[in-house]
């Protein structure tokens, strides 16, 4: 059996996707660990893999008038060094893994892996990112929160590849990001929290709040955010207990080898409180 295909270009990759069942393989930092066997042996996968990490068509960042288009196979290092990357994304990338992992791990791989601890996800939810999926017939654009269905589950079809990520351009005055892990580098998140805010004339013009690793998918509530918009900082401070209890019902962490549900819940709500009391300008 063929263990791996190496297409010349995106068109050929999509043809392979259409003809055979294959596993897309970008940086391989998730796949090589998942398929790992004894040292000395090649990793094992149920299906042949399709190398896509080298495809130039998937490795560009393009700045358009209202949005940024990020190719799915851009490495995390490349994005960290890219001058057009929004600060909120850079902050998440800065704390991601280690230089050696960031040098080959891709943003598309992090999204498609759909791990609750995927560190690009809270920020991608917060900035209203969408993903472009492509097959031989054409493309479709799906908002990130509709793309990810659960732990390791996405709406990607067998004949599709994630082509690019679209991020609407928008600036924020406050960016508060915390990743809680066991070790500073190379540790998956126990919890992550991101708060973004834009204040105008003393009122909250825009606010975005997302939590990672505390539920099967990222937690973000547009309803709660909408209720905070147009309010003063002072008012928000008064209703913090109420806001916390609303988020508390959405945060459904689990116990696992990295942490436990109790710790995750307490700490994530404290990070929220900190953002609302101290960090909003």
């Amino acid at each position: 059996m063929v263990s791996a295909y190496r297409p010349e270009n995106l068109k050929e990759a999509l043809l392979r996707r259409k003809e055979f069942r294959v596993i897309p393989f970008a940086g391989g930092t998730d796949l090589m660990v998942k398929g790992r066997r004894w040292s000395g042996l090649a990793p094992h996968f149920e299906l042949p893999v399709l190398f896509i990490g080298h495809l130039g068509e998937l490795k560009n960042v393009e700045l358009e008038q209202n949005c940024l288009r990020i190719g799915s196979c851009c490495t995390l290092s490349y994005l960290l060094e890219n001058e057009n990357m929004p600060q909120a994304i850079k902050i998440a990338l800065w704390m991601f893994a280690s230089p050696a992992i960031r040098n080959i791990g891709t943003i598309g791989g992090n999204i498609c892996n759909a791990s609750p601890a995927g560190d690009t996800l809270p920020v991608l939810y917060a900035v209203n990112a969408s993903v472009v999926l492509k097959n031989t017939n054409g493309i479709r654009e799906v908002p990130i929160e509709q793309f990810i269905k659960g732990v390791g589950k996405t709406v990607l079809q067998d004949d599709e590849l994630l082509k690019e990520i679209i991020i609407p351009i928008k600036s924020f005055d406050t960016i508060y990001y915390r990743k809680v892990g066991t070790r500073k580098a190379n540790a998956l998140s126990k919890i992550s929290f991101l708060g973004l805010a834009k204040i105008k004339n003393g009122l909250i013009e825009d606010i975005r709040i997302s939590f990672g690793a505390v539920a099967p998918t990222v937690v973000r509530s547009m309803e709660i955010e909408d209720r905070l918009k147009g309010k003063t900082k002072k008012y928000i401070k008064q209703i913090i207990p109420e806001i916390c209890s609303q988020y508390s019902t959405l945060i459904k962490p689990i116990d696992d080898q990295r942490s436990n549900a109790y710790y995750r819940k307490i700490v994530s709500l404290r990070l929220l409180k900190h953002f609302l009391t101290k960090d909003i300008l």
Binding site: A4, R6, F25, G28, T29, M32, V33, A42, P43, V49, F51, G53, H54, S77, P99, A100, I101, N103, I104
Partner: peptide, 15 residues
């Protein structure tokens, strides 16, 4: 020119 951990690199990707 970049540091990479060779234990998680499939040799087919270094063509």
């Amino acid at each position: 020119n970049r540091i990479v951990n060779s234990c998680i690199v499939a040799v087919g990707t270094v063509e």
